[in-house]
């Protein structure tokens, strides 16, 4: 098995590591780097529990959300990656996370790290997202606890807070 030297910048910290060519970003983050906020829910891109930001200059926001279980780590050399732990500054919560806390958009918490990453991306890209757009935007992230009611409430609340800040 060939090892590939890569550098990943995860939540502003640089990791220069050797990875196996067949290892996914999820495996590398969880097993090699012990970054367990990226969750294994299905391993096949169905549940979104491993959603992370990867920088991508083709995107208007400069980054996109990737299912870490579907991305081979070796293909991400030089990339900047952000997880739920790096959304806010200095380990603080961003507006989306704060809204999830205040609106009780969290139950068992297993989908939450992926859900807040996806929600953040959604609002970054479309600050005026309608409720339908929020719901369709979250279709790739499964939650079995909340019925999505308080998750949608949380995203809408974050949207309001962010819009006020922009003014």
């Amino acid at each position: 098995m060939s090892k590939h030297p890569i550098t990943l910048t995860i939540n502003d910290q640089e990791y220069s590591i050797y990875v196996d060519g067949h290892h996914t970003l999820l495996q590398v983050m969880r097993d090699q780097l012990n970054l367990t906020e990226v969750k294994y829910g299905c391993g096949r891109g169905e549940c979104g529990a491993c959603s992370v930001f990867v920088d991508d200059q083709k995107e208007s926001t400069g980054r996109k959300v990737v299912d870490a279980c579907l991305a081979l780590a070796a293909t991400l050399d030089g990339k900047k990656i952000t997880t739920s732990r790096g959304l806010g500054k200095d380990g603080q919560l961003n507006e989306v996370q704060q809204a999830f806390v205040e609106e009780s958009g969290i139950q068992c918490g297993f989908c939450t790290p992926g859900m807040v990453v996806k929600s953040t991306a959604l609002l970054e890209k479309n600050p005026k997202a309608t409720e339908d757009e929020i719901r369709f935007g979250l279709e790739g992230n499964i939650c079995r606890c909340t019925g999505y009611v308080k998750i949608v409430d949380s995203v809408k609340k974050a949207q309001k807070v962010m819009s006020k800040k922009r003014k």
Partner: peptide, 8 residues
């Protein structure tokens, strides 16, 4: 337990 769950 909100904060630990929302941070992961």
């Amino acid at each position: 337990d909100s904060k630990e769950k929302v941070l992961g």
